[in-house]
């Protein structure tokens, strides 16, 4: 019994494992997002011009002033500094986007995973609720709600969060369903793991990857939605947002023609941020897309 062909064999030298790379594009996006997050967090502390002060300059004639050394992004009709206002706008836009998707994940993600795992009546009820939520045209619902309530940072975030519950929940449920019947879950049950442990240790690590990429994409959607709402004058009442700035800059075709910078810079920031979120989300998904088979 000294030699045992079955157990003494098996291992050959480890094959060279090639690390997947996220790529330069991803890191550029992350840098941009980091910069935006920094700006959003610390705007009041930055040496910026006041976003509300009117920098009237009689020598330059009537505002709006075009971009110059003094006003990098130019000024609006009331001679306010577009650069300072754009950076201040990041604050509300990003906070709303982040808060909305967090709320969506907390509620939608939890409900989705639980209904996908336990199935049965829980699943039937939650799926019905999701379908009802998805059946409302979300923009109309958002407009309705925001026109009825007091529009603060919190309420706007909650409204957008409410809207993201159903899509997030559906994806979480689908991703969970895909893994709940896999044999490794069965294997966990037969070694005595509790449902709670199975959800946390076996299901979540698998569901987290598609979800994290969705979180980035979802945040992009929320940022755009907030922009849309404020463009309609239905976002946070007191405060500067990108949507509000864009709306101001495109009040009339005349403003757009004569002072395009007022709308252009907020649009550019919004565009770059949303692009970064989408691109990063996509890369994250690819990166974690492990091969499950070597056969």
């Amino acid at each position: 019994m000294s030699t045992n062909p079955a157990t003494s064999t098996a291992i050959t030298p480890d094959e060279t494992i090639v690390k997947k790379k996220l790529g330069v594009g991803f890191w550029l996006c992350v840098t941009w997002l980091g910069l935006m997050a920094f700006i959003a967090l610390f705007t009041p502390l930055l040496p910026l011009k006041s976003p509300t002060q009117n920098f009237l300059d009689p020598a330059n004639g009537r505002p709006p002033y075009s971009p110059s050394w003094k006003h990098w992004f130019g000024s609006d009709k009331d001679a306010r500094d577009v650069f300072a206002r754009t950076l201040h706008g990041a604050r509300i836009s990003l906070t709303v986007g982040f808060a909305a998707i967090t709320a969506g994940f907390l509620v939608g993600g939890t409900v989705g995973v639980i209904s996908g795992y336990f199935k049965g009546w829980i699943d039937r009820i939650s799926s019905f609720v999701f379908i009802v939520l998805l059946s409302f045209p979300s923009l109309v619902l958002a407009i309705l709600l925001t026109s009825l309530i007091e529009r603060s940072l919190l309420t706007i975030s909650l409204v957008l969060g409410l809207l993201s519950i159903a899509p997030v929940g559906r994806l979480a449920r689908a991703a969970t369903l895909q893994f709940a019947d896999r044999e490794f879950v069965l294997a966990a049950r037969q070694i005595g793991a509790t449902n709670r442990r199975i959800i946390i240790k076996e299901i979540l690590p698998n569901v987290a990857i598609p979800m994290s990429s969705l979180a980035l994409l979802g945040m992009a959607v929320a940022v755009v939605a907030e922009g849309g709402l404020s463009f309609l004058g239905l976002s946070v009442e007191k405060g500067i947002t990108w949507g509000g700035l864009i709306q101001l800059g495109s009040e009339s075709s005349k403003t757009l023609e004569e002072a395009p910078w007022i709308a252009f810079f907020p649009i550019l920031m919004l565009f770059l941020t949303v692009l970064s979120l989408n691109f990063a989300g996509d890369r994250v998904r690819n990166y974690f897309d492990v091969k499950e088979t070597t056969l």
Binding site: R182, E183, F184, L186, A187, A188, R189, Q190, I191, G192, T194, K201, E202, P205, N206, I209, V290, E292, T293, L295
Partner: peptide
Amino acid sequence: MREARTKIQMIFQDPISSLNPRR
């Protein structure tokens, strides 16, 4: 039941699906 199950164990057909790919 949870306790009793540990005395019997099971091995499945699909070796890849039986193992959590993320762990």
